[in-house]
Write a protein that binds this DNA or RNA. Structure first.
Lengths: 238, 238
DNA sequence: TAAGGCAAAAATGTAGATTATATCTTCGGT
DNA sequence: ACCGAAGATATAATCTACATTTTTGCCTTA
């Protein structure tokens, strides 16, 4: 129905600042702590403890945990409670394999739909990433800034793929990959030469060389996997 | 209580049947009602009403809604409540496109990893599907049995792809596709000739003809999309 | 018509009751 | 004494009832 000049239209894009609830805050905090490995794989997330930790009541905590359980960032067992999921080399391999499949496809589509804005964003994201120094353990070892930019770069690559589903799936997997990186961060750091690899991916993408770009992207993931395989990252299961 | 002759032995390594909580029951019920279109797209899910409907308290309902929100089966707005997501032709197109991409890939991998058991399950699933009659509106129009078997068939095809991530993503999208089918069920029914299409997909897959199988699979999805496009399924947004 | 102000409605959160699970203890048989 | 079953206690998850906070709808006023 064409509503000409309707006064208080609720436009789809209207942004009313949504006041965040306690549940949402706990959700965000828990998410970070799980991704960063502060909460250990296998650990039980007891309601009372979590509530105390984040200064919230049992219900908001419970809601947050329920959300996270649907993202597979916590395991839920009825009447038994919530747990931080275990990590394993085997599931990491499956994760990387699937990332290669899906991000390749997303990159391919993105290149097919390339626009000026897409290219610009990639260049920008790369620039920011390459200017972020990797901090070694001696320096405090907080690489969360790098993680954020790293993720932004990979997101920029696939942003034009034309499927919010696919972007969502890739992001979900990025979350989990990030957790593996953080948990093994005690021993492994982002490689110094990753900048160069990212540059190569970017260049192939901007050149419109689909096959080369996909190749370089998946090579990078596989290389990172190999590095992690060399460590024992079986999340405390032994 | 104590059922004589049926003592609840706890065998070693036994998988103890998890007693379902109220939250989980509501979750399942809500999920079904949303997928089947009983709860209309765009509709507000008021806590009290939902609680009354399923005979539960506010908290279990809230937990169920939080889980569903992470699956994109309900929209959540802090302090504003929960809603059944809208449907639109545009997002259906994106959904179908993404399904084609991912299920093609999954099918390809499945065929590459084919085993006897995989083939058997496909044959079995096809048999069951083909023996399920489609009920027209006059006959009550409940095609949930068909939906279950239809889904089982497509799952059997991709079961050997080697990635639980990919299988999960495909299933998530199947849920949403199912909702589109149910909502437009007033006018559209599973096509009579879909049996034949499924047979062709199965045959190509069992023959190990990757390209043909993928082609037939995606053709089917695109054909179904075209059928739905001919209807107005824009969930009451106008 | 537009802004401001209320009151009702609804979402969210708290506290404590209830129920299930896990743990510990006891008892009978070997 | 040792093992396992049965029962009792402690712990923790879950749920209910109600308090608090925010939003929504409506009415008044400029």
């Amino acid at each position: 129905m064409a509503l000409i000049g309707q006064p208080d239209v609720k436009q789809a894009g209207e942004v009313r600042p949504e006041k965040v609830t306690a549940a949402t805050q706990v959700y965000g905090a828990l998410r970070q702590d799980i991704l960063k490995g502060i909460l250990k794989p296998g650990q039980k997330l007891q309601i009372d403890q979590v509530a105390a930790r984040y200064g919230a009541g049992a219900n908001p905590v419970r809601e947050a945990l329920n959300r996270l359980s649907s993202e597979h960032l916590v395991d839920r067992h009825d009447q038994r409670g919530f747990f931080v999921p275990q990590l394993s080399l085997e599931s990491l391999r499956e994760l990387v394999k699937t990332r290669c499949w899906l991000e390749s496809k997303a990159l391919e589509e993105s290149i097919a739909n390339r626009t000026q804005a897409w290219e610009d964003n990639i260049v920008l994201a790369f620039h920011r990433l390459s200017r972020t120094r990797i901090r070694l353990p001696e320096e405090g070892g907080d690489n969360s800034e790098w993680e954020v930019r790293h993720r932004a770069f990979h997101n920029a690559l696939i942003a034009a793929c034309g499927s919010s589903w696919l972007i969502g799936f890739c992001n979900e997997m990025m979350d989990h990959a990030e957790r593996y990186r953080y948990v093994s961060m005690t021993t492994t750091y982002p490689r110094r030469d990753s900048d160069e690899e990212h540059r190569l991916i970017m260049e192939a993408a901007l050149d419109g060389d689909v096959e080369l770009a996909k190749q370089r992207l998946t090579d990078q993931y596989k290389l990172t996997l190999r590095h992690l395989e060399e460590e024992q990252i079986d999340g405390g299961s032994e």
